[in-house]
Write a protein that binds this DNA or RNA. Structure first.
Lengths: 192, 192
DNA sequence: CGATTCTTTGAAAACAGTCAATCTGTGTGG
DNA sequence: CCACACAGATTGACTGTTTTCAAAGAATCG
């Protein structure tokens, strides 16, 4: 399982064997069954988490109890709650597994230590945060200016891989529309 | 004008006089008249920009030519287009001044050099990006699960200072609703 | 299989958008 | 200093998209 993480890192940076060993020594391996929680609302999140296998989603609940998916994370992507991690406040997020998954966890303290010891890892993770920020800006724009149909088309174009392994109602939740609307949108698209 | 920037930095980190001088030596001062562009769609953005005085907005245009405001930046906040900065792609954003403003620009190259020379500045800016990311996640959630009224109330609660200096139609644009809807929402709120 | 979960469909309702007209306030030029 | 122009805000009537609620099909899993 660590090999997957190592392979990911090596595609982004050049590290020595000692450095990999250093990283490996603080990795916590976690297997999740489908539907199992990685994080529940109210808990404080204390890790950096890397998805080696499977897929997880992070979502919030509104006052009416509706789920709103904020992010998916499949193989070779990061997950967690940066807000709770940084502020140590109880998380507003839930994260659970959409499929049986394997996750590597590194505690905040260990991760920070790694980052000072391995600058390349530090810039790697800063890069990820930058990308995440850019992605969210794009998503805000989509949420504000796209119709339901445009949102869906943009999603399957950008996330072709994800869109085939996710149930439709989760895509709907991610796009901020109801499953019924998504079903109708798809019907319209197929017509064309 | 640099004093404002210096004051901001000193509230977040402790730097030596030489370090401040180093920063000052690469600062480009830019004054903007109201409505003047800082960045226009299609240009490549190459700076880190800090607002000393005034207020700017960044927005995108959709196919119909409607403006959608992504961010405001008032005194002591950063602006720019991180996507264009990182990828060197032409920007999809426009940034212009809502009020007469004074901005400090630092070119990408100079900023990176500063960050390696002054680690505290590096972590300061990483902190900002983290916060920006958290803010956008919050905004995505709001866009997906709030009604127009809830969006507006959340906005004026979170941005009391901004809400009094912005024209209503810009707030509407930021919230992803029409000026007419915002006007009606306000009417409803006053009623209560 | 049987049970649960997911998707589809229909009809009605709600919310926000559009278009157009009017009102308000501000600033500029004569 | 007034008048006019202009940008912004409000209001009304109407439209359209999406939601809601309910029910029926389809698919998946133990």
């Amino acid at each position: 399982m660590f090999e997957i993480f190592q392979h990911y890192i090596s595609s982004k940076a050049t590290l020595s064997n000692e450095e990999y060993n250093l990283i490996k020594s603080v990795c916590i391996l976690k297997k999740l069954r489908k539907k199992q929680y990685l994080l529940q609302e109210g808990d404080v999140w204390k890790y950096n988490a890397f998805v080696c296998k499977g897929c997880v989603r992070s979502y919030r609940l509104d006052e009416k109890g509706n789920e709103h998916i904020l992010n998916f994370a499949q193989e070779n992507w990061w997950t967690g709650d940066r807000e709770s991690l940084l502020t140590a406040n109880p998380s507003k997020l839930n994260i659970d597994a959409i499929e049986d998954s394997e996750i590597i966890l590194i505690t905040k303290d260990n991760f920070e230590r790694l980052c000072t010891q391995i600058p390349a890892l530090n810039s790697l993770i800063n890069n990820i945060i930058n990308k995440s920020f850019i992605t969210s800006q794009e998503r805000i724009h989509a949420a504000m200016s796209y119709t339901a149909e445009e949102k869906y088309i943009a999603f399957i174009e950008k996330h072709a891989d994800l869109s085939v392994r996710l149930p439709q109602h989760m895509i709907a939740s991610y796009l901020g529309i109801t499953p019924e609307t998504l079903s109708r949108v798809r019907k319209e698209i197929i017509k064309k």
